[in-house]
C-alpha cells in the first residue's frame, strides 16, 4: 500500500472527522477534528499499521483562529509509509494525549507543552522538559522575543534578556545568490 492509499482509506473510514489535504511533494496530510483525534490515531496504529510516531510538533499561527496546529508524523515499520495528521487547537483547548497509543508521545508532548504551551489532557507527567521548572513563558510562541524576557524565581533561577547587538544572526533562505543568503545580523521585527 502506498501512502496515498493509506491516506484515502483513513479519509473513507472517518469521512466526517478527517479532511484530506492536497498532496505536497509525495507527502500526505489529513486534517483531523479534535474531538475524534484519539479514535483516528488508534485506527492509524491498529488498522493502518502506523506503529511509529516519528514526531509530534506544534505550529503557532498567532492571528489565525484556532491558533495552534498539533502535527503528528506517523510511520509504519512494515509498509515504510509516512502520514501526517494535523489537528487545529485553540489557545484555551486541550489536546488529548497520545501516550496510550504510542508511549513515545510522552516526551514529545512534554516538549510541545514546554515550548508552545499546548496542554495535553490525560498526560501522565506533563512537566517542562527542556527549560527549567518554574519558567513562566512559552518561548516558541510568536509573541515571545528571541532575546528572552527577564524572569526571576528567587533562590532558584533567573533569566535575563540576551544582548542582541545588531539583531539575530540569521541566514535568509531563498535569497537570489549566495551573498544574499549568507548569515548576517538582521534587526528583529518591530513588536
Amino acid at each position: 500500500m502506498t501512502a496515498a492509499d493509506l491516506a484515502q482509506s483513513l479519509a473513507k473510514a472517518f469521512p466526517e472527522a478527517t479532511k484530506l489535504q492536497p498532496e505536497f511533494r509525495g507527502e500526505h496530510t489529513l486534517e483531523v477534528r479534535l474531538s475524534d483525534l484519539l479514535a483516528v490515531l488508534q485506527h492509524c496504529r491498529d488498522a493502518l499499521g502506523f506503529d511509529s510516531l516519528v514526531d509530534l510538533s506544534t505550529v503557532d499561527h498567532e492571528t489565525r483562529l484556532p491558533r495552534f496546529d498539533v502535527v503528528y508524523e506517523l510511520y509504519g515499520m512494515e509498509h515504510h509509509q509516512h502520514l501526517r495528521l494535523r489537528v487545529l487547537l485553540a489557545d484555551e483547548e486541550e489536546c488529548p494525549s497520545a501516550c496510550e497509543i504510542w508511549p513515545t508521545a510522552n516526551w514529545h508532548e512534554r516538549e510541545a507543552y514546554d515550548m508552545m504551551g499546548v496542554r495535553f489532557a490525560n498526560h501522565p507527567d506533563l512537566r517542562r522538559i527542556l527549560l527549567w521548572e518554574g519558567f513562566p513563558h512559552f518561548p516558541l510562541r510568536k509573541e515571545y522575543p528571541l532575546a528572552g524576557l527577564p524572569t526571576e524565581l528567587p533562590e532558584v533561577a533567573f533569566t535575563r534578556p540576551a544582548p542582541m547587538a545588531d539583531g539575530p544572526f540569521v541566514t535568509s533562505a531563498g535569497g537570489k545568490d549566495a551573498i544574499a543568503r549568507e548569515p548576517r545580523a538582521r534587526p528583529q521585527r518591530a513588536e
Binding site: 527542556l130 527549560l131 513563558h137 518561548p139 515571545y144 522575543p145 528571541l146 532575546a147 528572552g148 524576557l149 533569566t159 535575563r160 534578556p161 540576551a162 544582548p163 542582541m164 547587538a165 539575530p168 544572526f169
Partner: peptide, 16 residues
C-alpha cells in the same frame, strides 16, 4: 559571554 547563542535559553556568561 554566551558566545553566538544570543538566545532566551542560554546564560550570557557563567560569571553571572
Amino acid at each position: 559571554s554566551g558566545g553566538m547563542y544570543r538566545s532566551y535559553a542560554v546564560l550570557q556568561g557563567i560569571d553571572q
